[in-house]
Computed example of a mutant assay.
Amino acid sequence: MKKKQRFEVKDDETIDECLQRMQQLGYQPIKRMEKPVFTEVKGKDPVWKKQQIMFEGILIESQQEKS
């Protein structure tokens, strides 16, 4: 397993469900990132589509080894 991994909140899940998925895989969130997602409309300005939310997590075991 990687020591760090990014997890994206999927369209059909809540933030809590994403955090639970991280925990089940053995990761603890250390950073939250958000970025806007735009769609290009032909001949017009980009249109906001959604806000993409991602978490960066570290392996829980690797944090305990440092302590």
Rank of each mutant, 00 (worst) to 15 (best):
Q52G: 00
Q5L: 12
Q24P: 11
L19P: 09
Q20E: 09
Q5Y: 08
Q20H: 13
F7G: 12
L25E: 06
Q23F: 06
V47H: 14
V47F: 12
T14E: 00
R32P: 02
Q28I: 02
K42L: 13
V41N: 14
K49E: 15
Q28W: 01
L59R: 13
S62N: 12
F55A: 01
R32W: 02
E13M: 08
E8R: 08
F38C: 06
P36F: 03
K42H: 12
G43H: 10
K35G: 02
K2D: 10
V41R: 14
T14K: 00
V47Q: 15
M54A: 07
K31M: 03
S67W: 04
P46D: 15
W48K: 09
P36V: 01
K31C: 00
K49F: 11
K4G: 13
K42V: 09
K10Y: 02
K44F: 04
E17N: 05
K44E: 12
D11S: 14
K10V: 05
V47D: 15
E8M: 11
L59K: 12
Q24D: 09
E65L: 05
E40P: 08
K4S: 12
I53D: 04
F7Y: 14
Q23W: 08
K50T: 09
P29S: 11
E61V: 10
L59D: 15
K4W: 04
E56F: 06
Q28E: 11
Q52R: 07
K10D: 04
K66M: 04
D45G: 12
V47S: 14
K42D: 15
D12W: 02
F55T: 03
K49N: 13
Y27H: 06
K4M: 14
M33N: 00
K35C: 00
F38P: 06
T14Y: 01
I53L: 11
G57V: 00
V41D: 15
K31W: 00
F7L: 06
C18Y: 07
I53K: 15
V9P: 03
F38L: 05
P46I: 08
F38R: 04
T39R: 12
E34P: 07
F55V: 01
E40F: 04
K44Y: 08
I58R: 03
D16T: 15
Q64D: 05
D12I: 05
D12K: 08
T39V: 10
P46S: 08
R6S: 09
Q63E: 14
F38H: 06
Q51K: 07
K44S: 11
Q51N: 13
S62D: 13
F38N: 04
R6C: 07
Q52C: 02
I53S: 12
E17P: 05
V41P: 14
E56G: 09
I30P: 03
R6G: 00
I58Q: 07
E34K: 09
T14W: 00
R21Y: 05
D11L: 11
P36I: 03
K50I: 05
D12E: 11
R21E: 02
I60F: 05
Q24C: 06
M54F: 06
K50F: 01
R6M: 05
Q28C: 02
Q24L: 08
F38M: 11
Q24K: 15
Q52A: 00
M22Y: 04
K35F: 01
M22E: 02
